[in-house]
Simulated assay, not measured.
Amino acid sequence: MFITVEGIDGCGKTTQLELLAEWLREQGEEPVLTREPGGTWLSEEIRRLLLRPGPEPVSAVAELLLYAAARAEHVARVIRPALAAGRLVLADRYSDSTLAYQVAGRGLERSWAEAVLAGATGGLRPDLTFLFDLAPEQALARAARADRLEQEDLAFFERVRAGYLAIARAEPERVVVIDSNGPVAAIQAQVRRLVAARLAQARREGDR
């Protein structure tokens, strides 16, 4: 099973993913915990390029293509091999981030972006995605605002949030929206219940 977490910076998704991985290990699972951009040597180098503040702006097209390159390497070297070995993969961000940030946030053409992402991933899609939703002003107050993307203005993150919510409305079977404006433990309990149910369903279907 391939599970991803999404949301604007400061929404708490990374903390929730790490807690989920810890709980799954306690249940006897051996999840592969990874992140985007990242997960391989090349992808981590691209991450540094993308997130480091620089002397001039990065074009939206170049930004998307760099994310796609990092994702292609990540899928080929980490995600697909792990899934083929029967491992549970937990990823901090995936293609939904590109659609939210570069399409909704930057204004790139959606069909072109989707074609690039399909080429980068070979069509691989998550089985389950948690979208941790939080008002942008609250998320930005939590975030360190240290990397290049975190330094964008409030209007940008409002567009990103709207892009994420549009994805969730279009794919309710895959994307579960979680209200991040609550206690960490309560949010994690909700995540665990949903993951446990999906895993039980996958096992039942596998026994048929």
Rank of each mutant, 00 (worst) to 15 (best):
A189D: 04
V5M: 13
F2S: 07
G182F: 00
S180A: 15
T129A: 06
Q190T: 12
Y94V: 11
Q138S: 13
M1E: 03
N181K: 10
L140H: 04
G206V: 02
V32M: 05
E29P: 04
I79F: 07
V116Q: 07
L124Q: 01
P31L: 00
S180P: 13
A82T: 00
E26D: 13
E150S: 10
F157E: 02
L65C: 14
A146Y: 09
G105W: 05
L124P: 04
R159C: 09
T14C: 09
A69M: 10
A118C: 00
E171R: 14
E73F: 03
D9H: 13
A68I: 12
G206E: 08
Q151W: 05
A168F: 05
A146R: 15
A162L: 06
H74Y: 07
R145T: 10
V61G: 02
R110I: 02
T14H: 03
D127C: 06
A91M: 12
G38H: 13
E152A: 12
L99R: 11
L108Q: 09
Q138G: 03
L65K: 03
I3C: 08
S111E: 13
R71Y: 07
V61H: 10
V89S: 10
A162R: 14
R125E: 11
R35I: 11
P136Q: 04
P183S: 11
A69P: 09
E152T: 04
M1P: 08
K13D: 02
E6S: 09
T34W: 07
R52N: 05
W112A: 12
D92T: 06
A60I: 08
R145V: 12
Q27F: 07
A115G: 14
R208D: 13
D133C: 06
L199T: 02
R148V: 03
G123L: 07
A69H: 08
P172Y: 04
A70S: 15
R148W: 07
P136S: 12
A143D: 06
G122L: 13
S59R: 04
A139Q: 06
A185Y: 00
R208Y: 12
R48A: 15
Q188P: 07
A162Q: 10
R125W: 02
I46K: 12
W112I: 06
A166P: 05
I46A: 15
R87G: 06
H74S: 08
